[in-house]
Design a protein around this nucleic acid. Structure first.
Lengths: 145, 145
DNA sequence: GTTTTTGCAAAACCTTTGCAGATGT
DNA sequence: ACATCTGCAAAGGTTTTGCAAAAAC
């Protein structure tokens, strides 16, 4: 785990101005470690007393994403989500409480036994670049229920 | 590979009427083995001379999905896509030509070495249900370029 | 003949854009 | 002071809804 760099400094290094809305968005994503969509993000900030207009929110998310301070991705349900964890990682999603945990999978891609789903033949002639893996299951709190 | 069941029969078993648009959608997805979004699907059917209004297309995709004849999923770019391959499988996407291949991964979930991306600790206390894996790389045709 | 589906038009929804005033550097 | 950002209003694109005519069973 890396030491956290102050948000101000992050913004300065990236050439992005430190405005109230922007700082709040970034801080929330870093501190909560969550992966909200715009609606969830807006709700979370509203609870903290910060109402950000839709246009401003979208503009900031675009800015922070293109500046490389956030990652934008889509979960398998199609929701566009934002993530302050820039290191390559995967997600594990609780099917009960929908908690999302960031995970690292140590197995190398080359250890995967990949077959063509139609023919059953091994898939040999592709070159692999990366994988996005979404695991679903029950988190410790929900596993017992 | 299972033998293909006639579309008419599939519809009858699922209690879904066999209309022209619906049959064309289903046949196209089965025959092409592709995973189009609505726009691509509409374009493909238009090329075959079948122009389906947006409302009808959406209604049919919803009907076929809820009847269990199609699977709806979102690729990591956020596009909602439809798939007539009902067997559990994953996708491998060419980063050059965007071809999508259906793949099966033989390794059991339990063989994955999963660590918490924040703490580095092994993730032990979750129960796993399934995984959605999207591999990216280059297909045989594009690997050489 | 009854129920479902089509396909038009309208509505709802999410995201982007234009721009004047406010804010950050 | 200058460039950027905010936030309102308006536009754009996609998906859903209402409903009368058409088609399927």
């Amino acid at each position: 785990m890396t030491d956290s760099i102050p948000t101000e400094e992050l913004f300065q290094n990236a050439g992005v101005r430190a405005t109230q809305a922007r700082t709040a968005i970034m801080d929330y994503l870093v501190e909560s470690g969550t992966h909200p969509n715009t609606e969830e993000l807006n709700a979370a900030l509203a609870e903290k007393g910060l109402k950000i207009p839709a246009a401003t929110l979208y503009q900031n998310l675009e800015k922070l994403t293109s500046a490389g301070l956030l990652i934008r991705f889509a979960s398998s349900d199609g929701q566009v989500r934002y993530d302050a964890n820039l290191a390559h990682h995967h997600h594990m999603i609780c099917t009960v409480c929908h908690r999302v945990a960031d995970i690292r999978i140590a197995n190398p891609l080359s250890s995967l036994a990949i077959f063509d789903a139609r023919t059953g033949d091994p898939v040999l002639r592709w070159t692999f670049e990366n994988a996005e893996i979404e695991l679903k299951g029950r988190c410790p709190d929900c596993a017992g229920t």
